[in-house]
């Protein structure tokens, strides 16, 4: 039974089936399947889609579809991990969001998807996120990385404000900050004291790996 459930979880992801992912996640909990193994199964599914993407066989719509299916299952499984007092291994914890005044989320969502595929635990705070909210989440989740998105030149200033707020709180050296977005440049990243910048979602994964290398 357990194997069938794990296989079905993986299949739900590679078939972009949110409904099946939710259903099999519930079933896994009901049948007492090890939730860590359930996460592994989901991860295998998303990796397979990720590999297809890297090889140019699958494209963004498929990748995002698979990530959505995984996202449908994850809260149920994570709840079970918590209930059992277990912890799952991740490549690192990343708090991410689009800064205040900016409601663009597609780029940010892609970055979140790629980071999840790569094994990071991504806490997505959504759009229009104020500096205080980022700081609260960084502290709460003991984040390794804070990732800030801003599409416009105007809202780029909010990235600066968030970094300044981290400094004020005295936690700027405890978390690495990476920034991205349409109007952002390396020069701007340097200017506001961000640790890293990349113009692409795939590039963001490389940055995250570099920043979390112990």
């Amino acid at each position: 039974m357990s194997n069938e459930i794990l296989e079905s979880l993986k299949k739900a992801v590679i078939e972009y089936n949110n409904e099946a992912a939710t259903r099999w996640a519930r079933k896994a909990v009901e049948e007492g399947v090890d939730p860590i193994k359930a996460v592994d199964a989901l991860t295998k599914g998303i990796r397979q889609v990720g590999d297809g993407f890297s090889q140019g066989e699958l494209w963004l719509p498929e990748l995002v579809g698979a990530a959505d299916a995984m996202k449908s299952a994850m809260p149920i499984i994570e709840e079970e991990i918590k209930r059992r007092g277990k912890k799952r291994e991740t490549a690192g914890v990343i708090v991410l969001g689009t800064v205040k005044g900016d409601i663009h989320d597609i780029g940010k969502n892609l970055v979140a998807t790629f980071l999840t595929i790569d094994g990071f635990n991504v806490i997505d705070l959504g759009v229009d996120v104020a500096a205080e909210k980022f700081i609260k989440a960084v502290k709460k989740h003991k984040a390794d990385i804070l990732a800030l998105s801003a599409l416009m030149t105007m809202t780029g200033q909010e990235q600066r404000k968030t970094i300044d707020a981290l400094k004020k709180e005295g936690i700027k050296d405890k978390v690495k900050v990476m920034i991205g977005g349409g109007a952002i440049t390396q020069g701007f990243a340097d200017d506001i004291g961000a640790d890293a910048y990349d113009p692409t979602a795939v590039g963001a994964v490389k940055l995250a790996r570099r920043l979390t290398r112990k």
Binding site: G56, W59, L60, G107, L110, T200, A201, V202
Partner: peptide, 8 residues
């Protein structure tokens, strides 16, 4: 058009 390879 968004390029479905990169999202750009």
């Amino acid at each position: 058009p968004a390029d479905m390879r990169t999202g750009m």
